[in-house]
Amino acid sequence: MKPAAFDYCRPASIDEAAAALASSDSAKVLAGGQSLVPSMNFRISQPSLLVDIRDVEGLDGLEVDQDGVSIGASVTQSRVMNSDEAYSAVPGLRRALRFVGHLQIRNRGTVCGSLAHADPAAELPALAMAAGARLTVRGPQGERTAAADGFYLGPYWTGLEQSEIITGVCFPAEAPGTVTVVDEIARRSGDFAVVGLAAAFDLEDGSVGGARLVSFGVSGRPQRLAAAEEAVRGFHAGAAGDGLYGAAYEDAADAVGDIHASGEYRREALGSLLVRTARAVSASNGGKAGAR
């Protein structure tokens, strides 16, 4: 389990990095490497060139202001998780990150790396969709931004071109009255989710006015739950959960089966997870429920 040979470069500027990335069809960005290096050890991934962005200027910023939390491409998950400012602006970040691997992984793994890797069972892409995050992407044609919602196309497949780099992501500050939660069922501590839910609930007087609900680990990508978002309107702690459960179950019609669970399990468990989360959040009446 050793990586195949590759060329390595460590550019100092984003222009150089973009140029290096464009130089080969199988070049890859190396940030924390916590997904990439293991897959290279298995030789599942055999890039010809690794573009290590650790020295690229301007990618190590973690900025928190009234608009939200901006996270540069080389900022580690631990750094975000440990930031009290980031937590108060976007509580969902810490709530998602505590499910991401373990300390040792988060110490090197980056938020943007996880967003780019697009594991269908990963927490951060789903959170980014639920929270309305926007990605900043740099490519040969210059810079563009992209909403996380719509960015995820399939397993390990995003709207990112081969020659593009995610240089940062901005999570908008959680609005008053909104509660963002992440919960999941995983087989073991730190594992990718078998069934996961990232949800931003807009609460009005103890009931749900609206929500952005995103499943992860259920189908081939993080997925908005359209029917459940309709069904959850007006949900409150004392409400019957059947309708909401059924809506999520329908939303997850394309749930996949694998060695950990069947598609049917994922549909059922997603419905149950959603009802339980919506109950807890409504019961807390806009408080910090769901922060586990």
Partner: peptide
Amino acid sequence: YEHFQYDPETAQPRFASFMEYLYPTCS
């Protein structure tokens, strides 16, 4: 937790790592 699963048709292993073979942690 731990279970080696094989494809029932091809007998190809459906495991290659600790992500599929679930060795329990302290939790």
